[in-house]
Amino acid sequence: MTEVRRRRPPEVRRQMIVEAAIPLLHEFGLRGVTLRGIARAAGVSVGTVTYHFRSVDDIVDVAVAQDVTAYYERLEERIRAETDPLAALDVLVDGVFTEETRRHWQLWFDSLGSTMEGREVRTGQQSRYARWNEMLRAMVTGGVEAGAFASADPDRTVSLLVALVDGLSLQRLRGEPTLTSEQARDHFRAAAGQLLGITA
Rank of each mutant, 00 (worst) to 15 (best):
W132M: 09
H104L: 03
W132F: 11
W105G: 03
M139K: 07
R103K: 13
A138M: 06
V144M: 03
V144S: 03
G147D: 02
M116S: 11
M135I: 01
R128H: 13
G143I: 05
E120N: 10
S111A: 13
R102T: 07
N133G: 15
L107K: 05
R119C: 05
T101H: 04
V121L: 06
N133F: 12
G142F: 00
F109H: 14
N133R: 15
L112R: 08
A150V: 14
F109T: 09
H104S: 04
T123M: 13
G143R: 00
W108G: 12
G124I: 05
E120C: 11
F149K: 03
R137I: 00
A150C: 11
G143T: 01
R122H: 06
E145V: 13
R131A: 03
W108S: 12
G113A: 04
A138R: 04
Q106V: 03
R103G: 06
A130S: 10
W108I: 07
E117W: 05
L112E: 11
R131Y: 06
E145N: 12
Y129R: 12
S127G: 13
A130R: 14
Q125F: 12
M116D: 05
A148R: 06
W132S: 09
R119N: 11
T101A: 02
A150T: 13
R102Q: 08
V140F: 01
A146Q: 08
H104V: 00
D110Q: 09
L112I: 12
M139T: 06
A148G: 09
N133S: 15
W132R: 14
D110N: 09
E100D: 14
N133A: 15
H104A: 01
A148D: 12
T115S: 14
G113P: 02
E117T: 09
R102F: 10
T115F: 12
V144T: 05
L136I: 03
W105Y: 11
R102C: 08
Q106F: 03
W132Y: 11
A146T: 01
R122Q: 06
E120K: 12
R122A: 03
G147F: 05
V140H: 01
V121S: 07
A138S: 08
E145Y: 11
S127C: 10
Q125Y: 13
L112H: 02
E134K: 15
T101G: 00
L136N: 01
A138E: 13
Q126F: 13
Q106Y: 09
L112Y: 07
E117N: 06
E117Q: 10
E134C: 14
L112M: 12
T115D: 15
R122M: 05
A150Y: 12
V121K: 05
G118Y: 00
M139A: 04
T101Q: 01
G142K: 11
R131V: 07
R122V: 00
L107S: 01
M139W: 02
A148N: 07
